[in-house]
Design a protein around this nucleic acid. Structure first.
Length: 357
DNA sequence: GGGCGCGGCGCAGTATGATT
DNA sequence: AATCATACTGCGCCGCGCCC
């Protein structure tokens, strides 16, 4: 999918939230900043020089996108904070004799750029993220265009390296997946048992009521879900679902199993499939207010993550697409996620045995 | 094809606010 | 109170695409 970073807020956020990508870009671009309060910082002058645009142009981008850029670390320094920042710069400049050859050029540049800084009462300061953010918004600067295409290359590269092209089971690469899957598996049993006990024999009852749950949660049945994620009929739909979604499915299954039992007991007979389908609508309605916040969350998680990680668009959940948080990128692409994948391999045997029980 | 709006751009002037 | 570099703002230029 071709991304237009200058116009898509979510695409920009999804890249800037991906710290693995940011680090890789920093390695490759090597734009030297001043380390201050744990982060590399850049002044507006440095940034306008990098992109070869007027300072005013940076200003205007700031005007139009202030909130976004501030979120990514832009700050206006003044007073004591500015003083500390200046001290940091000048001590860096004074150290120049101790610095490796490579950096000397940069230090001289620093010196030129900050000579004027002595007396300024306020200074706009960018983090590396905020700098990239500017680059994504500058449509005409040649350097910004180069930077954007480099960023997109790195995004693709990182995804390929971390996932080896396999995004199908990326949902399993987090701590919470396995416990959720096991819990859900148990509730699934409750659910199928209830369907056995309280609904008259019908070979469609499992799939139809399961689809009811899917439709209620993410507006599509399992067939549609399969298509969106490109799953074959053999592959288990649930193995591709995020833990939050599994938890919610478990809640539905457990809740409906209970609902069904109550209706069965008050009627003192088994229900037909069509009665059960009606009962599900009743169940859905009565749980509506209770389940709504969790459902909103599940929809957003599913739509946003699947777009970012799997390049899969849930058309019916379009309005729920949001940025993927940096925590999520770490969760699913970070070092830990790689370990988890290995650990999951080990656990598969355990999981299998559990299923066979 | 001429006119139009729009976004990007730079200049110049004003406002600001910390420092001396 | 004076200073100074930056933030902020108004203005006009330019190039592009769209519409009549």
């Amino acid at each position: 999918m071709v991304k237009d970073l200058t116009s898509s807020n979510i695409d920009r956020k999804n890249i800037l939230n991906n710290n693995i990508v940011i680090q890789e870009v920093y390695q490759q671009v090597g734009f030297l900043g001043i380390k201050f309060e744990g982060k590399y910082r850049f002044t507006k002058t440095q940034i306008s020089n990098f992109f070869e645009v007027d300072n005013r142009t940076i200003d205007r981008i700031l005007e139009n996108n202030k909130e976004e850029i501030q979120q990514n670390g832009y700050e206006l320094y003044s007073g004591n904070k500015l003083k500390l920042f200046k001290d940091e710069i000048f001590s860096l400049i004074n150290q120049e004799t101790h610095v490796h050859d490579k950096n000397v050029v940069n230090i001289i540049k620093l010196k030129e750029e900050f000579e004027a800084l002595n007396k300024t009462p306020q200074l706009g300061v960018f983090t590396y993220k905020a700098f990239l953010n500017i680059g994504m918004l500058l449509s005409n600067s040649e350097n910004a265009q180069k930077l954007r295409s480099l960023i997109l290359d790195i995004v693709i590269d990182v995804l390929n390296k971390r996932l080896g092209g396999k995004t199908k089971y990326i949902n399993q690469r987090e701590e919470d997946f396995l416990p959720s899957a096991i819990r859900e598996y148990n509730y699934r049993q409750e659910f199928t048992n209830a369907l056995d006990f309280y609904i008259t024999t019908n070979k469609f009852k499992y799939s139809q009521l399961t689809d009811k749950i899917y439709k209620s949660i993410f507006k599509g049945n399992s067939k549609e879900y399969r298509q969106i994620l490109n799953l074959s009929t053999k592959e288990s739909v649930r193995n591709t679902m995020y833990s939050e979604v599994l938890d919610l499915i478990a809640a539905y299954e457990n809740g409906f199993a209970n609902f069904l039992k109550q209706r069965h007991d008050s009627l003192e007979r088994k229900l037909s499939l069509s009665e059960s389908l009606l009962l599900f609508s009743e169940f859905e309605k009565s749980m509506q207010a209770f389940i709504e916040p969790l459902r909103e969350k599940a929809r957003s998680i599913m739509a946003s993550r699947d777009l970012a990680f799997r390049d899969a668009l849930h058309e019916k959940l379009k309005e729920y697409i949001d940025e993927v948080s940096s925590e999520d990128f770490e969760k699913f692409l970070g070092e830990r996620s790689m370990d988890l994948e290995k650990r999951l391999e080990d656990n598969k045997e355990v999981f299998k045995r559990l299923k066979e029980r």
